[in-house]
């Protein structure tokens, strides 16, 4: 295991152990609602269903179909805020 992989694993473990990873996910979920991402994605799903017909769409198809746009629609400011939170957490808890 490389030094970097070890550090990555240690960071991940610390975030999980202290409940910060779950809090960050919660923050992200809230931000996705707040910025309208969820509404945009719902509309997109409905469009895909309408286009293909409900009998021709599975959950997996739908997820695969909307995921690229879902990723692209996450505002940079949200990702930035998340990254800052992670960095602040690590700065506070680094040994």
């Amino acid at each position: 295991m490389s030094k970097e992989s070890q550090m990555r694993a240690a960071i991940n473990q610390k975030l999980i152990e202290m409940g910060e990873r779950e809090r960050l996910k919660e923050l992200l979920r809230a931000k996705l609602i707040e910025c309208g991402w969820r509404d945009q994605l719902k509309a997109l799903c409905k469009e895909v269903i309408k286009e293909k017909g409900i009998e021709n769409v599975t959950v997996e198809d739908l997820v695969a179909g909307v995921t690229p746009k879902g990723r692209a629609l996450v505002p940079d400011s949200v990702k930035k805020e998340l990254l800052q939170r992670i960095r602040a957490f690590l700065a506070q808890h680094s040994t």
């Binding site: 990873r21 960050l24 996910k25 992200l28 979920r29 996705l32 969820r38 994605l41 997820v63 909307v66 995921t67 879902g70 990723r71 996450v74 990702k79 998340l82 992670i86």
Partner: peptide
């Protein structure tokens, strides 16, 4: 975290 959350949400 973003990937995991998006996958769960979607």
């Amino acid at each position: 975290i973003v990937e995991e959350t998006l996958a769960e949400q979607l």
